[in-house]
Design a binder for these strands. Structure first.
Lengths: 242, 242
DNA sequence: ATATCGGGTTTACGTTGTAGACCGGTCACG
DNA sequence: CGTGACCGGTCTACAACGTAAACCCGATAT
């Protein structure tokens, strides 16, 4: 009877038994979405599932493995090919556009998890986040080679495309996280001395920043994403035709 | 006398007194470079500096602040403008090329720290990693406006350029980290049961991956970086001329 | 009926970040 | 020339975390 109350009064208990890797990962994702990564703890996750923390270890090889599972779960949501098989009318451009938007949607839905997808070490050095599962890469390569790409071209496109996705989406979710609230503090605000490291920073010494402040704060993430994607497609198209 | 030996026998003591924020951050950077982020601990860092862990708190506002300092230190190394002022002969292309390579060099020198630069929340939502300090952004905007960019163009370029850098460099250092050794385990290898989650993954079910395995493993990071940069510059040039 | 075992619990330990008390030297000032 | 402040180190302590190990119990197989 040492702890009768639930340690975190998040939700009392058992959202959907039977306990298993799937459910655990799912609930962990929800938890990060709601409170951020640092608040995902074995104990809190266990509590949320109405179960002792140690129970999780029956289904998951420790916290690292859990994070791995979370990343894998998100990556598995990526659809390389739309359901209604897109005809070769659109060609590879359509495929890449679809895929890009698919990945983008996932990133936006889980802005606090995407950094994990971006930075955790993939299973093999040639897997490039965010397209970091064998299934996705296979489908990607097939999609392109089916549409006339040589193996080399397909692989080069894989590299260019992942770089594009990673840069744009990571910046987009970072911006999203900044507005939503970066971390979720446990409700204190006693600011220390020792150079308070100004929160709302002073910009007066930087004339150009001051001048462009409004411009800098504008949000064009979606448009930027689309035009950069278009530019990439153009570039690839050019590279193909020679 | 509870702990007479140094907790981590890394280096006995005092590499360069006077203790201070600067020195602490510097040594922390060295430590991450050598052993990885998760092995950077207040106690180990203190030990490395020949000092009690708590001494660090006199100069640093806790671990988070230390990480902030590390990121800031790296970003401060970025040189927007070469020392020998480059004439307007090169124009803005030269500037961006120089800057890109400057940032890239830093990323490569600290592959285990760059992810921090990439993913930690900047001081303001409109600061975009890796160009995430006021000084760098100011110099960046000045460099461009000095060369004929409008404010809007300069800001748009800032966005495009940071996306480019982040995507390419993050993937490059991830690949680097994968070869060097991702984490630095404390020397055990007793593999658990529970689906060993295959380390050297099996690729036989993925014909296209199998076929392009060699291609996928080739390393073209530098070339890719340069050609993507060139493409970006072309795109910007085009956007400028209309 | 009884042995097995999957899957939960309890307890305990080591490691981490960090608060807070202590404490010794140095330096300003009466 | 004391004497107090204070700067910057130490020591001790604690809560939170990940997780190993032992336990335990109900269903199921023999």
């Amino acid at each position: 009877m040492t702890s009768e109350h639930t340690p975190t009064p998040e939700q009392a208990a058992t959202p959907a038994r039977p306990l298993g890797r799937e459910l655990i990962v799912q609930e962990a994702i929800a938890m990060i979405d709601e409170h951020g990564l640092e608040r995902l703890t074995m104990r809190s996750l266990g509590a949320r599932l109405g179960v002792d923390a140690m129970a999780l270890y029956r289904h998951v090889n420790g916290r690292e493995d859990l994070l791995e599972g979370i990343v894998a779960a998100l990556v598995d949501q990526i659809q390389v090919d739309p359901d209604g098989r897109l005809g070769p009318t659109e060609g590879w451009q359509g495929l890449l556009q679809w895929l890009a938007r698919s990945v983008r949607q996932i990133a936006i839905d889980h802005p606090r998890i995407f950094p994990l997808v971006a930075t955790r070490h993939p299973a093999a050095p040639w897997l490039r986040p965010p397209l970091r599962s064998l299934r996705v890469v296979e489908d990607f390569l097939r999609g392109l080679t089916d549409r006339g790409f040589s193996d080399t071209q397909a692989v080069e496109t894989y590299r260019a495309f992942t770089s594009f996705l990673l840069g744009h989406l990571l910046l987009e979710v970072a911006a999203a996280g900044a507005t939503t609230g970066p971390v979720e503090q446990p409700l204190d605000e006693g600011d220390a001395d020792l150079e308070p490291h100004d929160q709302s920073l002073d910009v007066t010494d930087y004339p150009l920043i001051t001048r462009t402040r409004a411009l800098l704060s504008e949000d064009h993430t979606e448009r930027d994403f689309e035009v950069a994607l278009e530019a990439l497609l153009d570039r690839l198209d050019l590279a193909l035709s020679q």
